[in-house]
C-alpha cells in the first residue's frame, strides 16, 4: 500500500513515512488494522455460504453424509499439509523481513507461492475426478446408484426421496462453491505473493517492506485458516 521508489539518499532500514501519518508506528498500526478489518469482511463473506451449508446439512444429514463420502479424503489431507507448510514459510518470510534479510524473504515468498500452486494442482486433480464421476452439479449430475438406494431407504415418501436427492446434489453445490471461492482467494494470494517477491528483489520497499509483508502474511494465514475449517466440514464429518 505504502509503496514508493527508494532513492539512494534515504536510509534503507527505515520505512518512509507517508505525509498524512504522524509517525511510523501509527503508519504500521493503520496498515495492520486495515488488514484485520478486511479479514473480518472475508469472514462474513464465507459465513453466508457456511450458514447455507449448516442449514441444509442439519435438514438432510443423510444426504450430506453420503455426499461427503465421495470426497477424496487423502488428497484433502495432503492439501491441508501443503497449506500449513505454506503458512510456515510465510511466517518465516515475515520474520526474515522483520530482521531485514531481504534475500531470505524473496525465497520464502517463492516457496509460499510454489506451495500455493501445489495446493491448486491437487485441487484441480480432485475437481477432475469429481467431474468425471458426474458429481459436478447441473445437467450432468448423476446420483451414484448405491447412494440413491441408500437415500431411498431413509426416505418415507417419494417426495422425501426427491428432496433428499436434491440435497445430495446440494452438498456438491456447496462443496464446489466453497472450495472455488477459497481457490479464488488462493489465486489472488499467489499473484500478490509473487508480485511482492519481485518487488522485494528489486528493493522496492523502504524499511525492508516489513509492514507490507506482515499484512500479506495476515491475508495468507487467513486463507489457510479458511481451508482448515473447510476440510473437516466437507471431508471429515461423518
Amino acid at each position: 500500500m505504502h509503496t514508493t521508489s527508494t532513492s539512494a539518499t534515504l536510509d534503507d532500514d527505515q520505512p518512509l513515512l507517508m505525509s498524512h501519518f504522524d509517525d511510523l508506528e501509527q503508519q504500521h498500526d493503520a496498515s495492520n488494522l486495515g488488514m484485520w478489518f478486511f479479514l473480518a469482511t472475508e469472514v462474513m463473506f464465507f459465513s453466508g455460504m457456511l450458514a447455507a451449508y449448516a442449514i441444509y446439512r442439519s435438514l438432510s444429514p443423510e444426504a450430506f453424509h453420503l455426499g461427503s463420502r465421495h470426497m477424496h479424503l487423502w488428497l484433502g489431507f495432503a492439501n491441508t499439509l501443503v497449506l500449513l507448510t505454506s503458512s510456515l514459510t510465510m511466517a518465516l518470510g515475515v520474520r526474515a523481513s522483520q530482521l531485514g534479510r531481504r534475500n531470505q524473504v524473496v525465497w520464502y515468498l517463492l516457496a509460499t507461492a510454489v506451495l500455493g500452486i501445489a495446493f491448486l494442482g491437487v485441487k484441480a486433480v480432485e475437481y477432475t475426478k469429481e467431474i468425471n464421476h458426474h458429481l459436478f452439479p447441473g445437467k450432468h449430475f448423476v446420483v451414484p446408484a448405491d447412494d440413491a438406494e441408500a437415500l431411498m431407504k431413509v426416505s418415507a415418501t417419494p417426495e422425501e426421496l426427491h428432496l433428499n436427492l436434491g440435497r445430495f446434489q446440494m452438498m456438491f453445490v456447496l462443496y464446489f462453491c466453497l472450495t472455488a471461492v477459497h481457490a479464488f482467494h488462493m489465486i489472488v494470494g499467489i499473484v500478490i505473493v509473487l508480485i511482492m517477491a519481485e518487488l522485494m528483489r528489486r528493493k522496492w520497499f523502504s524499511g525492508h517492506g516489513t509492514t507490507q509483508i506482515e499484512v500479506l502474511g495476515l491475508y495468507w494465514h487467513f486463507v489457510d485458516v479458511v481451508w482448515v475449517f473447510l476440510y473437516p466440514l466437507l471431508y471429515l464429518i461423518d
Partner: peptide, 10 residues
C-alpha cells in the same frame, strides 16, 4: 464492514 460481504455472497 460486517454486512456488505453477506450481500455480496447472496
Amino acid at each position: 464492514i460486517l454486512g456488505t460481504p453477506v450481500l455480496a455472497i447472496s
